[in-house]
Design a protein around this nucleic acid. Sequence first.
RNA 1: GGCGCCGUAGCCAAGCGGUAAGGCAGAGGACUGCAAAUCCUCGAUCCCCAGUUCGAAUCUGGGCGGCGCCUCCA
Length: 486
Amino acid sequence: MALELYNTLSRSLEPFRPLDPPRVRVYGCGPTVYDYPHIGNYRSFLVYDLLHRYLEWSGFQVQLVVNLTDVDDRTIEAAARSGVSLREYTHPFTEAFLADTRTLGILPADAYPVATEYVDKMVEFVAQLLGKGLAYTTEDGSVYFSIAAFPGYGKLSRVDPEALRAGARVAVDNYGKDDVRDFALWKSAKPADEAAGAAWDSPWGRGRPGWHLECSVMSITELGETLDVHMGGEDLVFPHHEDEIAQSEGVTGKPFVRHWLHVKHLLVEGRKMSKSLGNFIVVRDLLEAGHEPAAIRHLLLSAQYRSELNFTMEGLEASGRAVQRLLDFEARIEEVPVATDAPTAGLAELATTALEAFRDGMDDDLNTADALAALFVLVGQGNAALDRAGPVPPAEREAIQKVLASIDRVLGLVEVAGASRTLDPGTITRVDQMVEERRAARSVRDFARADAIRRELLERGIVLEDSANGTRWKVVGRVEGTVSHG
RNA sequence: GGCGCCGUAGCCAAGCGGUAAGGCAGAGGACUGCAAAUCCUCGAUCCCCAGUUCGAAUCUGGGCGGCGCCUCCA
């Protein structure tokens, strides 16, 4: 089976067929940098990353572009309130976004275009739409797209343009449109725009680009007139993506996007996340509360991207333990004794089966719940097999390790957990010393002393595991501070 | 009102016509100085009702319940 993706345009599962394989052009709607992106944003960004990783894993050459919206009502208002320029205001949030991205193991996109750097191209784009009779100017110097002039309008969201007109709520900033359904391509500058440095010259006077226009222009500039995949949150289907199609196809006359992917909104503690409900979660808050990035990543990937996902603190802790189980298995495999003449433990077959099941799950519209299950079946059956076996043939150990590594190139759980659990060499030395001290205590059956040391390390997130072959230790959760020898 | 989604064990979540994956939590057991890790054992009349079918969690119809978008919110 090959990859199938659900396409919002057709409302059905379709075989993934890029225009120009093995090259794949992917565009994802990124954050508006007016505040710290919340955990729901990262569900989407993580799905972008998942597709990015899985396509590369499957042999495609992916070019991924994720835009940053730095000019829109919210960034302008916020900048005005803070009394700084747009650029000054958005910069820290841009940096925060990129930092969170690294923390969560989201691979860098090939480009992160920012809207303010594409204004010239946007002006050109608007001029073309005007030239084709798909847009019109208003007295105040704004330009609107004329929905009535674009026959395909509504094909993505399946909204009936006529019904839209009847039920429309009139926009607050309705400057004098021909039709309430029309949307802004270019907005004439208001004093606040000028104050924030969010106004540019155009043939229609000073103004700024409309939000929908930004994505059309940046994606076409960076990736070409037809994108293989365009992604975003489900809320973007209408009007944002519908409008992007109208603009883009209006100008190019070509299909804008082959596969439209939309990520279902996250719930937090069973409710829609919103500032008024006080359940707005930001990555940095979770980290400060001691949750590790790998647990966040696991939880956000634990349900398929089109299905509801309820983000809860209880779930986050459960995810942390699930990640730990995976790491424990990896460590166990690493340390299992090998012997060239050892009898088979059946590990190679387990590895093959797991990889196939993983691929089947991912091919099925990125069904991460299924893919994750395949991985954990390997963990469970692998552990059971190792319990039964003594030393194993080196090739079998290698087979398991290869599959674990391969799967993790897509899921990135071990990768992210490893990154947040790294100890400095000095700490490692001190832990080793304490473990040795405890070994000595145990050898003379001084269990009180031994348990005290174990407890002390545990408080610092280090867990000891005794076995016949000695004691191994591991970092659990996020590393905080350093371990001092007490 | 328009468009759409969902209801599977305590929690999360697969399943897409052939008698229920996986994770977390819980109980008992093995192992252990005690733990930790690991293994073994234990748990679901799949919201309700009526149909279609040899057979339905899976299809159809009707209820009930929850949710999303239609507001420059991923």
